[in-house]
Amino acid sequence: MNHTIDDQVLAIGIPTDLLSTTVESLRAEILPLFDDTALKYSQVGKVHLNLCAVNMIDSAGVNFLVGIIRACQTRKLGITVTVKSRFVHRTLLFLRIDRHVELVVAS
């Protein structure tokens, strides 16, 4: 996982598939980024989650994603999710995740 904060946008890149076997370590890495004090200090107003390297996502991966969306909503942060894989895109559409985030398809 990599992240940057630039112009009040927290950009998070996920380098691996979102699966039951990968989400626990990702969760442990991402959790500190949503620390309220840190977010306030850096004046973050929006989160950009880059899933372009994600080719497969299972239910544990979806639940992980939902956890991030809820963390953003609780903190009143806007969230954009960028995907590249057609399968990941179709999964997020079918689960209506697009109603809760700005879903962007990278070319």
Binding site: D58, S59, V62, N63, F64, V66, G67, I69, R70, Q73, T91, F94, L95, R96, R99, H100
Partner: peptide
Amino acid sequence: VAQRDLLPSHRGLSM
């Protein structure tokens, strides 16, 4: 309910 309320669990069977 999971879609409406963004519940973070039990989506395997739906998929």
